[in-house]
Design a protein around this nucleic acid. Structure first.
Lengths: 226, 226
DNA sequence: CCCGATTATCAAGAAATCTTGACATAATCT
DNA sequence: AGATTATGTCAAGATTTCTTGATAATCGGG
């Protein structure tokens, strides 16, 4: 990964724990004990992401994030004691990206650190992240955000249109009968609601362009290579 | 994989091609040249899946599938020449599971064979298949079929409820503010439609049980370990 | 080339979903 | 404990989506 993580935490046990796990994952770790130190560390190192305890001497996490945000835009993960009054934890509104309560599972911290780094640096690894996008021609369908793009432009689909397109894009060139499509999309076994499918296909074509969905007369529809 | 594939195809080149690729993937292959041979092969071997050409001497693929279906329920993938009259291809209605036109990409055949075997034998490998299911406690969410199960029972969610639950299950224990949730779920930046979120959360809890979504007063909601 | 059948499109009705408002309930602070 | 604020729940209204019906367009066969 080759990234540097700033830890701001006054509990030395926790720092040791985090350091152990994070370095084991190949991250470089810069550890600081309060907000002032952390700001310094930010200025003197190439920090990629910060893990910050809210309760620290001198400058607490809240103030640190506020100050930090004036110059930096890296992801911040907040650590907080479990029973800390939650109304004091306005970190999320302030510009933190994630939030964990102590005690925490170190493996989970690592997962989240990676997740935020991926998101922030666009190093998306579709295998690991939940983000899965399917591509076909100019079409791009994101199963995580339920968004569909055609040539950079976002296309607004109804749930049924989305599901239909997803079915097609998962098996391009495969022919589906209207009955199959109806069942895959609604879960019900359609008697003669196949008629509805033709309408959805029509509307879908209207939105994504007519060059994708090909009708196979007497059989059904398929997504065809353009 | 350790599965046996029956090929019914009179074109020897295609058989050779399929055999090469499939055996290379560790499948056992039983090759036959017409429908009658194929039926015999079915009776004398432990066949797990069949790849059948529609146009064969003696007994064609159509008849073969019909006859086979009287005794067997294995997945069937149909092969068909590109320009064959499509109205003759009623295989899908008859009980075939997939359909490919020649010429085809051998790799695609393999992918589909695997896919059907997985589906049929429930050997789901989430890493390889597009099927991704997220689990948390007794909850299981399938992003491919848009289904949610709780303890084997299927739960019917509205699109919004589904999206909400998906967000939570992708980052359990992470706290989301109502504004964040609203934005993630609708795409819009909600001004004060945060009120709607509380209703959706309420309905969601009603459906999946109240033990999962925990409210963090002043902050938002999170999915909690039970 | 015309006829029959399948599919496409348009518009309206039906159904489901989302949002809003009102009030009940629960948690936090003084 | 009582007041205050935030959240939960219920029901109705608004919106969106899905289905159905009618008609036009298209494809394939004789």
């Amino acid at each position: 990964m080759d990234k540097t993580i700033l830890i701001a935490e006054d509990d030395k046990d926790i720092v040791a724990l985090l350091k152990l796990f994070l370095e084991n994952e190949g991250f470089a770790v810069v550890a600081t004990e309060d907000g002032e130190e952390a700001i310094e560390a930010l200025e003197n190192n190439e920090i990629d992401i910060a893990v910050v305890d809210l309760m620290m001497p001198k400058m607490n996490g809240y103030e640190f994030i506020k100050k930090m945000r004036q110059s930096y835009n890296i992801p911040v993960i907040i650590l907080s004691a479990q029973n800390q009054d939650s109304d004091k934890i306005i970190g999320l509104e302030i510009g933190a990206d994630d939030y964990m309560t102590k005690p925490f599972n170190p493996l989970e911290i690592i997962a989240r650190v990676k997740s935020h780094l991926r998101r922030y640096y666009q190093l998306n690894d579709p295998k690991e992240s939940g983000e899965e996008t399917i591509q076909w021609g100019e079409l791009r369908l994101n199963t995580s955000t339920f968004e569909v793009f055609s040539k950079k432009e976002k296309i607004l689909l109804t749930p049924m249109e989305f599901k239909l397109l997803k079915v097609f894009m998962e098996n391009p060139q495969r022919i589906y009968t209207k009955a199959q499509l109806y069942e895959m999309v609604t879960g019900d076994i359609g008697d003669n609601e196949e008629r509805a499918i033709t309408v959805h296909i029509s509307n879908l074509r209207e939105k994504i362009g007519s060059e994708y969905i090909e009708t196979v007369r007497g059989l059904g529809y398929k997504l065809e290579k353009k």
